[in-house]
């Protein structure tokens, strides 16, 4: 495991922000850390970077205790927390050069990073005049500068346009598949994580509600049969009388729990026999977005 925490708990004054968190981030994964705003994501990330002192529980990164190996661990982590930290009066390149100085990285790396995030043309422009997307890209370049084994990114696509989001996503996938990095990325948007993550942790009110591979998450969601028919309400009653589990009915569609292909055929013929017109019938995976809401919203 690249990151593993045990019973991580953090309290701000009276409020428990992180509750007994046990994260497991395997090597070579893109771990999507999901949760609504205020769920405790940033606090967790600050704990992982030792910006907040661990109060309860422990954190191991690269199988070493964070507290006693702080410097060694931090030298292998690149991070971007909330909005990127950039000196507005320096140019993009100067921001990178300053960091390169601190990290003792050869200056050649600065040009490479600028190229990687497509900021070569804007390298000498003051970072204060950058657009939000450019700042975010510069933030990622800063995080990647030391060629770290682990990238910790807090909402890195905030404020990016669709093109920017795709670029970042492809970059992260490339880093993991071609350069054997591990990425820990937080977001409140499942749709975004779904497209790149191999593993997912879902947090709400400081509690970890789900943790596992993206396939585990998908299998949690039960598929449904979606039926489009002319008289949905009566059709639903008919199905219920025949022991089918109808979950939802609206003007155009009704939904029943999916069990097999066979069952879909039976529903179809039953409705046809009883004079209903079936316009369409198909299997539908309950989308993760809905699942995410189900998990994060208290019943």
């Amino acid at each position: 495991m690249v990151i593993s925490t045990e019973g991580l708990t953090f309290t701000f004054g009276q409020q428990k922000v992180v509750k007994s968190l046990s994260l497991n981030v395997p090597e070579g994964s893109i771990y999507g850390f999901l949760g609504p705003n205020g769920a405790g994501k940033t606090t967790t990330i600050k704990l992982l970077l030792n910006l907040l002192q661990t109060q309860e529980g422990n954190i191991k990164i690269f199988d070493k205790d964070l507290r006693s190996n702080r410097i060694e661990i931090l030298s292998q982590i690149g991070s971007l927390i909330e909005q990127p930290a950039i000196y507005a009066h320096l140019s993009g390149k100067e921001n990178l050069l300053n960091r390169a100085l601190l990290l003792e990285v050869p200056t050649q790396r600065v040009d490479d990073m600028l190229k990687l995030v497509h900021l070569t043309d804007a390298a000498h422009k003051k970072a204060g005049q950058y657009s939000l997307g450019m700042k975010q890209r510069l933030g990622i370049a800063l995080a990647l500068l030391s060629d770290p084994k682990l990238l910790i990114l807090d909402e890195p696509t905030n404020g990016l346009d669709p093109n920017g989001i795709i670029e970042i996503r492809e970059l992260l996938i490339r880093l993991v598949t071609q350069h054997q990095k591990t990425v820990f990325i937080s977001s409140h948007l499942l749709a975004e994580i779904e497209k790149m993550a191999t593993h997912v942790g879902i947090i709400n009110y400081g509690e970890l509600l789900f943790q596992g591979s993206i396939n585990d998450l998908a299998s949690l969601s039960q598929p449904l049969v979606q039926i489009e028919a002319n008289n949905t309400v009566d059709a639903a009653n008919l199905l219920t009388r025949n022991n089918f589990n109808v979950t939802e009915v609206n003007d155009h569609h009704l939904f029943a729990t999916y069990t097999s292909k066979q069952q879909m055929g039976e529903i179809n013929s039953l409705l046809n026999k009883n004079g209903y017109t079936v316009y369409s019938i198909n299997k539908q995976q309950k989308d993760l977005e809905k699942l995410f809401l189900d998990i994060t919203q208290p019943a």
Binding site: K46, L49, N50, L51, I71, E72, L74, S75, I77, S79, I81, E82, Q83, A85, I86, Y87, A88, L102, L103, L142
Partner: peptide, 18 residues
């Protein structure tokens, strides 16, 4: 203030430097 303005305290203290 240079760090307050740029919000860079967090980066300074997550550098691999004591």
């Amino acid at each position: 203030s240079i760090e307050h303005k740029a919000d860079t305290w967090k980066t300074l203290f997550s550098l691999p430097i004591p």
